[in-house]
């Protein structure tokens, strides 16, 4: 906070400085809250990841998971789950987004957008239970299929598996994709397609040379958002699996809350690993965003 005020006041006359000082006071509450509840805990977390929880001595032991294939299982599971739900969400969401745009019906667009906002905000415990009621062992759809001779669970399906979680995660990944891809899809000018057409291009040539290159940037950027979103999700996974499927967020929660597995140092280290993945996704997204706003002026 002190550095912030110092910076803004540099080189101003004394009278203005006192006014600036008073104005800076308005920034104080935010600075305090951010420091206390974001910066300090983050520093504590990073510090903790490099120190033994018991002795307090500097140690890299918490990061030993990086070298042990067995300890990387949660990362592998999380990676798989995030990748699957990102691909499903990304492709289906793109398809729905284009269907909404192609419908050219304001009413459909309105309903679909509002519903997407609602669905993208469904997550956590309620969503998990909605799916247990649908696809759980005695879920509505499970029973319906069973009475028609298809037994999902005999076929090896489990809701609390990576496949099951993918289906559930898709419930918010798809609408999220719809919401983030709608603006670029709507920004695609009809005259681009017509210009390509009149120049002799087939539909496929237009897609390959114009539409796909233009949409690629926002598409990948959206996938990164979906990926980060799936990777960091905890509530849904926990409610569905009660901790049975080994995912990074679930391992972290076991390490800070479990009786047997309590090890805050390792939790810190896992959290740092997770944060790195998040940072890569979000950072990549920020870079891509800048490029796509240049092409699709929105």
């Amino acid at each position: 906070m002190r550095s912030l005020t110092a910076r803004t006041d540099a080189g101003t006359p004394a009278a203005a400085r006192s006014r600036g000082g008073r104005a800076a006071l308005a920034l104080l509450p935010l600075a305090v809250l951010i420091t206390a509840f974001l910066l300090v805990p983050t520093v504590a977390l990073v510090w903790g990841s490099f120190h033994d929880s018991k002795t307090g001595a500097f140690s890299l032991a918490n990061y030993s998971y990086l070298g042990h294939p067995l300890d990387l299982i949660p990362f592998r599971n999380s990676l798989e789950l995030s990748l699957a739900s990102t691909l499903v969400g990304g492709l289906v969401g793109l398809l729905i987004g284009q269907a909404i745009v192609s419908s050219r019906q304001p009413l459909i667009q309105e309903i679909a957008t509002t519903f997407s906002s609602v669905a993208a905000n469904f997550a956590g415990v309620p969503l998990a239970y909605a799916f247990i009621a649908t696809l759980g062992n005695s879920g509505l759809l499970t029973l319906f299929l069973r009475s028609n001779g298809i037994d999902l669970y005999d076929g090896g399906f489990k809701l609390y598996s990576v496949l099951g979680l993918t289906i559930v995660y898709a419930y918010w990944e798809i609408p999220l994709m719809v919401l983030v891809m709608l603006p670029p899809l709507q920004a695609m000018k009809r005259s681009w397609r017509e210009a390509a057409e009149i120049l002799g291009a087939s539909r496929w040539q237009y897609l390959r040379s114009v539409a796909i290159p233009i949409l690629m940037t926002p598409f990948i950027s959206s996938l990164l958002l979906l990926y980060a979103n799936a990777f960091g999700a905890y509530a849904t996974a926990y409610a569905l699996t009660t901790g049975f499927v080994s995912l990074v967020p679930i391992e972290i929660s076991n390490l800070i809350n479990g009786d047997v597995s309590y090890d805050p140092g390792q939790a810190d280290a896992l959290a740092v690993g997770l944060a790195v993945i998040m940072a890569v996704c979000i950072g990549g997204r920020a870079i891509l965003e800048r490029r796509s706003t240049r092409w699709l002026d929105r």
Binding site: F37, T42, A267
Partner: peptide, 30 residues
Amino acid sequence: FQRLRSTIEFLSILPFVIPPIILVVGLSSM
């Protein structure tokens, strides 16, 4: 304080990088 804008924008994407499951580890260790 227009000059603080970029700082604030950075802080405003930080919670994406630090989702609840990470924040809770930091909060509970602190």
